[in-house]
Design a protein around this nucleic acid. Sequence first.
RNA 1: AGACUUGACUUGGCAAUCGCUGUCGCAUUCUUAACGGCAGAGGAAAGUCCGGACUCCACAGGACAGGACGCCGGGUAACACCCGGGAGGUUAUCCGUAAUGGAUGAUCUACGGAAAGUGCCGCAGAAAAGAUACCACCUUGUGGCCCCCAAAGGCUACAGGGAAAGGGUGAAAAGGCAGGGUAAGAGCCUACCGCAUCCAUGGUAACAUGGAUGGCAUGGUAAACCCCGUCCGGAGCAAGGCCAAGCAGAAGGCGAUCUCACCCCUUUGUGGGUGGGUCAAGGGCUGUCCGUCCGAUGUUUUCGGGUAGGCCGCUCGAGGUGAGGAGAGAUUCUCAUCCCAGAUAAAUGAUUGCCUUCGGUUUAUUGAAAUUGUUACAAUGAGUUUUCACAAAAUGAUAAAAUUGCUAAAAAAUAUUAACUGCCCACCGGGUACAUAGUACCCGAACCAAUUUUUAUACCUUUUUGUGACUGCACGUCGUAAAAUUUCUCUAACCGAAACAGAAUCCGGCUUAGGAGUCAGGUCUAUAU
RNA 2: GCCUCCGUAGCUCAGUGGAUAGAGCAGUGGUUUCCGGAGCCAUGUGCGCAGGUUCGAUUCCUGCCGGGGGUA
Length: 134
Amino acid sequence: MRKLSLNKRERIKGSTSFEKIYSSGKKIISSDKRVRAVYKVEFPTATPFVKLGVAVSKKAGNACFRNRVKRLLRESFRLNKPELKVNLGLYILLSPYSFLDKERKYRLSYFSDSVIDVINKIYSGINVAQPGDQ
RNA sequence: AGACUUGACUUGGCAAUCGCUGUCGCAUUCUUAACGGCAGAGGAAAGUCCGGACUCCACAGGACAGGACGCCGGGUAACACCCGGGAGGUUAUCCGUAAUGGAUGAUCUACGGAAAGUGCCGCAGAAAAGAUACCACCUUGUGGCCCCCAAAGGCUACAGGGAAAGGGUGAAAAGGCAGGGUAAGAGCCUACCGCAUCCAUGGUAACAUGGAUGGCAUGGUAAACCCCGUCCGGAGCAAGGCCAAGCAGAAGGCGAUCUCACCCCUUUGUGGGUGGGUCAAGGGCUGUCCGUCCGAUGUUUUCGGGUAGGCCGCUCGAGGUGAGGAGAGAUUCUCAUCCCAGAUAAAUGAUUGCCUUCGGUUUAUUGAAAUUGUUACAAUGAGUUUUCACAAAAUGAUAAAAUUGCUAAAAAAUAUUAACUGCCCACCGGGUACAUAGUACCCGAACCAAUUUUUAUACCUUUUUGUGACUGCACGUCGUAAAAUUUCUCUAACCGAAACAGAAUCCGGCUUAGGAGUCAGGUCUAUAU
RNA sequence: GCCUCCGUAGCUCAGUGGAUAGAGCAGUGGUUUCCGGAGCCAUGUGCGCAGGUUCGAUUCCUGCCGGGGGUA
């Protein structure tokens, strides 16, 4: 895993994989209720990987605003990726849960803390579920 | 200079760090990773409202249906687009008439046809479209009354006729208005205006101008059906093509069944041959028709679909930029030069700092303008004259001090009281006494009110006395200077803001969203010339 | 991407050029009843927004806004 990059290879692609994650993944909401995450563990893998997907619903706003939210979520995950060190395949799907600011002018700091919180929750969830793997 | 408005253009900049997509290099071939270079959203990318390019539908056919467009000319690949012109409406200003009006500017127009046909025009009104007569008008006959009687005349009732000017209704009433004419009226006649037809002139045309004739025929509505003219085949890049594996299946040949046409034989048939077709009210090609294509079943050969995934389509184009030419303009021609996004749960971003633009606040400051129950000086005007100034004394007033009075003293809980007030204790601060703690006793800041005393008073109130002044005094106007206030501006600091919005095959338009800036034009206001 | 439909009272729907826009349920008040329900009577609330055609628009036309469905 390279430093702080987020390639095309480290993203979830295709609608079938999205459906798989939504149907059989685990849901987590951050403690400040800003970010929701769905994750799925793929246990027997040749090489360990982490793949990210971002989804914003159409009710959030117009296309420009949705693009901005996606970029902020992706950026905050990219900067905090070294916190998550796993030996298995992991799909993570982030999406915003609630919007407080009605003027829709967000900075990066709005999402980064809750993304760190979600990452810690996922990390502890994996360690509890698979204790013998560590 | 400011405000409003129209059109065109631009869409914050720089640096650092961390990243994303494509492409090229490293690299002789393949794969993976790293590094480096270059490129990387819009004027609306949006809405999907029109028009095209491109691809497939066998051919891209005919008629009907359906849809779109609709003053004239031009532009274009095409257009519900654009440009120029015409006509009409609205509005502002100016001019003018007895009245209708005319000119200029701005702005709007789905602006073909109502003498091809059908429909509709509620309520009101006599009548809502080749009609009709409620009131009112004129007239004839008969009856009644007025008159002593009759005629004439007048009034009235009924019956008939004329006519459509006036009233009234309505969004709209069968040309308008003036004169003549008449029993009353009427394009019945005449002038002007409108309308229709014809002619002439100008213009490519829409149309305009002029003349003659007619004598009013032709109410409105086509964003009601409709008629006329022009144009349109359908579907859409998720079009369409290719790819490993596998399956559904498809195509061609042959045979069988049935059937049609032609020929032959003759036992004129359940015969033979050749050619075409094959459930015909089926499916496809456009909604329908014509036309046209396919076609049941068995066997064999060949091919091997669609969806998901990947690749292509896919960004060189009605392209951009610059110069020159044509044109009134939209637009177009020539030359030179450039390559300028291509993602696919969807790249073009995040953080920090500095600068730029705009807004607000604060303080200081530069400059300008305005104002004043202000001050001083100068000029001028009309007034006034026991009024003003100075000095002394007294008095008031103010200030300070003292005394007395009034008034406050944490929070919570419980109990009592109908509630309030007073008193006591505790509680706050300080002091005194005894004194280890602590206990007992005493006092209450400031404000306000009243009283008393003393001191001071430059200025201030009132009174008295003395001296001086009318060359005074206060008021109005203007000017100069000062002061104060207000507004604008310059600079600095701080804070905030920098819109609308994200390509998805590509272009040309339209519509909608929206902050700021630049340039050009117009209108209005203010100042100066 | 394309095609198509709808917006009328708090809810479900009629009405399609002529002015007081209607029905059912719901709401409010009254009546009936010993009380309540049912019944009866009365009543309030509206044509998504803007522009145009017309004498007159919920209806016709155009443009926006919002919502639903289909298809590959």
